[in-house]
Simulated scan of single mutants.
Amino acid sequence: MKHLLISAAAILISTTAILPTQAMAQVSISVNIGTAPPPPRYEPVPSPRSGYIWVPGYWNWNGHAHVWSDGHWERARPGYIYEHSEWRQDNGQWHLNKGGWKPGKDKHHKKDHCPPGQAKKGNC
């Protein structure tokens, strides 16, 4: 019984140590098909929303056909840039890069407006 308790405790501790790093991991998804996406749809861009960026819609692939994914708001992440989803053609194949947050300079976040102490933390 004592060994079972120790094993369960070890599993619990190792799981909680791994969870924060998994939550921070960036996932990159790419789709490759032979069918070109339809022309992009026009979406009116809503008025700016403080603390958020607008991510435009794009043609996604559901495994059988192109389906439109509507644009949406994403909460801004200081120190990151949002790479928009896009299709590219290469050697007769179409490749969808679904985009997402990538580490980098946020062009909307100015250093001269950085709150005290945030620049040292890399947030500006």
Rank of each mutant, 00 (worst) to 15 (best):
N97H: 09
P78G: 02
W101E: 08
E86N: 10
N97E: 08
N97V: 01
K105S: 01
G99R: 01
W87C: 11
W94T: 08
I81F: 14
G92V: 06
G79H: 11
W87Y: 07
N97P: 06
D90I: 04
H95K: 14
Y82I: 09
W87K: 09
Y82H: 14
G104H: 03
K102E: 11
G92R: 02
G100T: 12
G92L: 07
L96V: 04
Q89R: 06
W94I: 03
K98Q: 10
R88Q: 11
G100C: 15
K105V: 12
W87T: 15
P103V: 09
I81H: 15
H95T: 14
R88N: 09
Q89C: 09
P78S: 09
E86Y: 08
K98T: 07
D106K: 08
R77P: 00
G100R: 10
E83V: 09
I81E: 14
L96F: 03
G79I: 14
K98A: 03
G99I: 02
G100Q: 11
D90Y: 10
S85L: 01
Y80Q: 06
Y82A: 12
K102P: 06
E83N: 04
S85R: 04
E86T: 07
H84D: 15
W94M: 01
E83A: 04
D106V: 03
E86K: 09
Q93C: 05
H95S: 12
W94G: 01
H95L: 13
R77L: 09
W101A: 10
N97A: 06
K105L: 05
K105E: 08
R77T: 08
W87D: 14
W101Q: 12
I81S: 13
K102W: 00
W94K: 04
S85D: 05
W101T: 13
R77M: 12
K105C: 01
W101M: 13
N91M: 11
K102H: 07
S85C: 08
D90F: 09
L96Q: 02
G79F: 10
K105P: 00
P78F: 03
D106G: 04
G104S: 06
Q89W: 01
G100W: 10
P78E: 06
G99Y: 02
S85V: 01
N91G: 10
L96H: 04
Q93K: 08
R88W: 04
G99C: 10
K98Y: 12
S85A: 15
Q89A: 09
S85T: 09
R77S: 02
L96C: 03
K105N: 05
H95E: 05
E86F: 04
Y80F: 13
Q93R: 11
G104F: 00
Y80E: 05
G79P: 11
Y82G: 04
R77G: 00
H84L: 15
N91Y: 10
K102F: 04
D106P: 04
Q89E: 14
Y82C: 05
R88D: 06
P78Q: 11
W94R: 00
